[in-house]
Amino acid sequence: MAEYKGVMTYCEIAEGSLPSISREVAGFGRKLADDLGEELCAVLVGSDVGNLAQDAIGLGADTVYVVDDPLLKEYQTDAYLSVMEKVVRKMMPRILILGQTSVGRDLAPMLAFRLDTTATLDCVGLAIDPGTKLLLQTKPVFGGNAQATFTSDFCPQIVTVRDKLMPPPEPDASKQGEVITLDAGLDPAAIRASLLKRVTENEGGVRLEDASIIVSGGRGIGSAEGFDQLQELAALLKGAVGASRPACDNRWLAPNRQVGITGKIVNPDLYIAIALSGSIQHLSGCAQSKSIIAINKDPEAPIFNYADFGVVGDWKKVLPAFRDKLKELLPG
């Protein structure tokens, strides 16, 4: 194990820049590297991504490895897996951190098995054990009803971290670092599963992850038409609409609108939960909102234990009055 050294972050790229999760991952990586007294490196994988290396350095990386290849334009499991396998075997980091995103949750476990090591997904806490120097990997289990901390004696210790756990570090444009380009060396035949198309389902509205106000509905909304009323309130507040898993499974709203442990983790200023009982799986995704308002006909609904303000009543009657009054109160 002695030969494994340093912390590596996998720097996910979205629309030509480093999204918040990549900056947050950099923050975790820097902290762990400092605690170990070792270096932090970042890996950039994609097509035409070399220009982002300085950004990664500014976020704390001492070294950035860039793997640039037209075949890497879009995330495809087999191609990225092959690239990351190569990078990790070459650089032998002690720890590899990815974001808990569509990419991270797909790539991390496969990479771990390919490298015959372990991974822990969806970590909400990472720390170095001062005695053993092992990575303490804390993640929710039992749908969020408990938090388990794991260690592994195998390297690299691979983890994904949940987003929005802490604010990303401020970029430091003056920070110096080294940029090293690595050859992808991809064999197109190694790409077994091929991406035929990507379909974006963002109805032009505010992205859930970016919204400062979220109006969310649960099973009690009962229909896609019911969600139109939530859309209306969200539009009034310039917010986004979210939903619990049952509502998305019923296709009342697109799956990418799901808030919770298997959907999105959000932290808006205000989360308005309507006809949504608040399972622990759902609350895991929204409990960090600054304020929560609940409208539910069941006074025993768990959501009220998390809400700041609540109304016990039928949403079909409460919501229109709430909306109309807000319309009156809000400027222009």
């Binding site: 408990a146 388990a148 794991f150 409990a287 998390y306």
Partner: peptide, 16 residues
């Protein structure tokens, strides 16, 4: 993988 700790999750403290 070794389990080294199991704890209650932190709860949001609010009075509704």
């Amino acid at each position: 993988v070794n389990l080294v700790r199991l704890a209650e999750p932190p709860r949001r403290k609010t009075e509704c």
